[in-house]
Design a protein around this nucleic acid. Sequence first.
DNA 1: GCCAACGTTGGC
DNA 2: GCCAACGTTGGC
Length: 152
Amino acid sequence: MTRYWLMKSEPTCFSMADLEKRSQQIEPWDGVRNYQARNFLQAMQLGDLAFFYHSSCPIPGIAGIISIVKRAYPDKTALDISNPHYDPKSTPDKPRWVCVDVQLIKKFKQTVSLAQLKRQSIFSSMRLLQKGNRLSVMPITAEEWQAILMLV
DNA sequence: GCCAACGTTGGC
DNA sequence: GCCAACGTTGGC
């Protein structure tokens, strides 16, 4: 059974438009440095779908749909001392962080904005809208997924 | 730039 | 194990 997720990225760092330009429109989703988010990455199955969310930008919101095309594997950026996400506590023997590969499925013509989601009470229970929520990877229910697609 | 909320660190 | 201090996230 397909499961649904939401994955955040700051577009100045990596955007939907960036993914669109990649070879085969596939990219490792790396740099996650939060244990709860990491555990969600590890739970992802091939073919799971996710919303690509743009954060910390003029119009925060969902920019499109991506698919998990490679299950969790060690995140090499944690071992690279020159990488901003370098973590000295992660080692090749005991990698602490993981990434998955994602592939572009659909880029929305217009972002489904956070403001739009907030306008409808059906979304108020979403983890994304909970006060103080900062998780960069989170599950979405099938109902939430379908309801958001109606806004595209 | 501000600030609330959260996670992590480290002293005790 | 507690908790204050600090760094980060992310909307506004």
